[in-house]
Design a protein around this nucleic acid. Structure first.
Lengths: 115, 115, 115, 115
DNA sequence: GTGGTCTAGACCACC
DNA sequence: GTGGTCTAGACCACA
């Protein structure tokens, strides 16, 4: 957690969870800690955790059983991958291409540094 | 101008100016419009324009003649290039490599889409 | 059982029981399963079942013999019918009329879909 | 505002705004009050207002200009109508039909009471 | 125990 | 002035 980042904490936490899903550390129907528990763990207010969980729920990545807790959705990994892929191709890639062209950087740096 | 972007408007405007410098549409000692004029043009508050000019001034990209206006600095193009190159190699590149690896994107997309 | 519905689970279960009463699947003095048994059947906490039974008891729809179990009351069917009729005419109907008027839905959809 | 309703306040407020949109009291690009102003008006915490505005934004009904305020979206009325129609046909109608059948209510009550 | 909603008050970036 | 995020603490319904 970077408390000074310009990226909201609740989204940073969401990202962390998404990464764990991609890594298969979190699998469908796994329970994730309660807002209170996780909040205490991270030194963050339960309300902030709640915002994270709301966001992930509306994205279909986790689901809720009332009074019990939050769980990873069935299609979670696919949704996360899809989101990130989309974000990359739409937002990141065009900027990159424009930039390296402007800066005169050879596009093969990517292949060379790719391992 | 994208008023809903998460990127501050004043930085979006700064970017626009930097791009014109890179394109040689703006050359050293060219005068750029006053905050009022430019602001009216873009439908933006003069205060916001002022922040743009302050930022570019502190970067050494433009300079001010009191009572006359703002002008492109001598080394402007080089500074802009240098800034962007540095930013790209330090901040953007590592993230890109990590991401495309995670998403299973072939690094040759860059070469293919490069024109 | 829909664990994500905004309707409490204990009320969903109560509704299920009421429907069986209306259908004559459950008749006066029939015994209904114990909270443990029924709870296990539905994958629901016995506490939740208890709330269902408490609610139905206070409505006079079921009654309890200590140490033996819960049973359907004599007037159960009439009570359920009465409750639902009252609820419908008081709460549901006015909202429906307002809504279909606003949405421009023809009130004959009811007659058409009624089978 | 009904502070004792089981429906969250922030959703009640959202509904109010949606109704005004349907009534054409609020038209595209109209500004709605700031979270502080509207909150004070309704005797509600600005945070609660914020939740309302977040919800409506994610539904595409209003949009935000940073530092300026929230405004009605172009397609707002259509979205609201669509949402309510969908909700009615999917959630409300089936229950109604089931109920009136069970209760032995003649479906022509709708036509008769419709004005 | 769990989540869901709400308040009060704070700080920040941006216009 | 605007929204956006966060904390602390409260109360409630539900399991």
């Amino acid at each position: 957690m970077d408390f000074n980042s310009n990226k909201p904490i609740y989204l940073q936490i969401a990202d962390t969870i998404c990464e764990r899903i991609l890594d298969d550390q979190l699998k469908p129907d796994d329970r994730i800690p309660s807002v209170r528990e996780y909040g205490a763990q991270l030194g963050v207010n339960p309300n902030t955790m709640m915002r994270t969980y709301e966001k992930l729920t509306s994205d279909g990545i986790i689901y809720n059983k009332r009074g019990i807790g939050y769980f990873i959705s069935q299609g979670a990994r696919e949704i996360v991958l899809e989101n990130e892929k989309k974000f990359f191709l739409e937002n990141t890639l065009p900027g990159i291409l424009k930039t390296i062209k402007l800066l005169g950087i050879d596009p093969s740096v990517f292949k060379e540094n790719y391992k």
